[in-house]
């Protein structure tokens, strides 16, 4: 029994390393000199018998890629700041609006509540290919196409996170609220002092997952910002970077991965507990 465990742990560790490999290689390549990367990337797409070099470490450790991306030529940075702007605005808006909506849908009784909850679930099931169409119709009507609002406003009520938070608020024991009411607390105080703190882990999980969505968006800019490529976030620009190597693309990739990594480290426990809490039905 013990022996099987050790073998299993060995296999899982190897698998974990395999999963981490693409991330590690990206980081390693970012420390190569730009000329080295350029030469390396030019050996791609050769259909003879030649193999690419199996590059596992830089020939010469260099921070030149970072120097160029961050200081010398800041054209990439502009897209980077676009990404930061969209993500920050979306998360800030979501963190105000979504828990409130979830609270209304879980702890109040009013006519139409179940209809709204059902609509949220239907919207959650509909893929982006469907929901983007009504969104575009509204954006055009409001004259918001090709503006930053086109990215931010529609994502403020992302149905998946409304659903997650509603589930977690439904799970809060009613006695907590009753006790607070006896002490004279109204719905607003109950929200601030019970609903929000008790759902903290789930909110943390939702923030992390929503960050991943925003930071990784590709479809939205293509559809909502068709004529303003200067407003695109970096996530859409990467595939142009890969077509012709400039030698700095791996540093760009690492700089883009870094915030995601930090968010992950910060919210990792919340994701685990948030998911465990949400006894989904």
């Amino acid at each position: 029994m013990k022996k099987r465990h050790i073998l299993l742990r060995l296999i899982l560790t190897l698998l974990a390393l395999l999963i981490l490999l693409p991330l590690v290689l990206t980081a390693v390549y970012s420390f190569c000199a730009p000329t080295e990367i350029k030469a390396f990337m030019q050996t791609r797409n050769q259909y003879g018998t030649a193999l690419m070099e199996l590059k596992l470490r830089p020939n010469l450790f260099s921070l030149d890629q970072y120097w160029r991306v961050l200081i010398q030529d800041t054209s990439l940075l502009r897209y980077y700041f676009n990404s930061i702007g969209y993500t920050a605005a979306t998360l800030l808006g979501q963190i105000v609006i979504i828990p409130m909506l979830a609270y209304a849908l879980s702890r109040f009784e009013f006519r139409g509540r179940d209809v709204i909850s059902f609509a949220v679930i239907v919207l959650l099931l509909l893929p982006f290919q469907v929901t983007m169409v009504p969104t575009v119709l509204t954006l055009r009507r409001l004259g918001l196409m090709d503006t930053m609002w086109a990215i931010i406003l529609p994502s403020l009520t992302s149905p998946f996170y409304v659903f997650l938070l509603r589930q977690s608020m439904l799970g809060i024991p009613g006695e907590l609220f009753e006790a607070a009411q006896i002490d004279g607390a109204g719905p607003a105080r109950c929200y601030v002092h019970i609903a929000l703190p008790v759902s903290r882990a789930m909110i943390g999980a939702a923030v992390a997952l929503s960050f991943a969505d925003c930071w990784n968006m590709v479809e939205q800019p293509l559809v909502f910002l068709p004529n303003r490529t200067d407003l695109h976030p970096l996530s859409v620009v990467f595939n142009q970077l890969s077509q012709e190597s400039t030698g700095v693309e791996f540093a760009g990739a690492v700089l883009y991965l870094l915030p995601a990594l930090l968010i992950y480290l910060f919210f990792q426990d919340d994701i685990m507990t948030g998911i465990a809490l949400s006894e989904m039905k």
């Binding site: 693409p22 991330l23 990206t26 797409n45 690419m52 996530s235 760009g252 990739a253 883009y256 992950y264």
Partner: peptide, 21 residues
């Protein structure tokens, strides 16, 4: 971890891993 890693930034390394050579 990969769930948080933006796929666009990972593209480059996938292109290398899956290259013909």
């Amino acid at each position: 971890l990969p769930y948080l890693a933006p796929s666009s930034a990972m593209l480059l390394v996938w292109l290398v891993l899956f290259d013909y050579g």
